[in-house]
Amino acid sequence: MTAMLNIAMLILGGDGPQGGLLDVNPGLIVWTIVTFIFLLLVLKKLAWKPILNSLNERETFIKEQMEKAETAQKETERLIEENKASMAKADEEAQKIIAQARELAEKLQSQKVEETNEKTKKMIDDAVAEIDRKNKEAMNNLREQVAEIAVNAAEKIIRESLDSEKHKKIVNELIDNLPKN
């Protein structure tokens, strides 16, 4: 029984100078209110307002920066895409130009070949004509010479028409002396 009383005394008090565990001291309540309100007012002015403002400021700053970075990235991607497109276009154009140049070169080459062929043909034709002409000339010359020789021979024959034996001999000689063509 005394034990129970002891425990009850321990909790409900009346034992020490300040009472028991559940005793409430009105002075302490007053001091707690004063202290807490003081702390609340001081910290509100000194800490919460500037710190919370700084935090908000920083958060908006970070948000803005991130948004900016995102738009910049999008812009970069767009530029890269554009670059790629223009590069492809340039490539295509270059290919086109090369093809055109090749075509032109081929055309030029074929033209030249034709020209050359024509020229050669002309040269050959000229040469053939020249040869023909020269041949004709030569034949004419020959004919004249043959005629002369024949006349000469006839002259000789007429001059030395003594015997036929000699005629034959002269004619044969003449014929032998004739150039071989």
Binding site: V24, I29, T32
Partner: peptide, 9 residues
């Protein structure tokens, strides 16, 4: 740990 303080809070 004082009931006066905690109840005031």
């Amino acid at each position: 740990s004082n009931i006066g303080v905690t109840s005031t809070l």
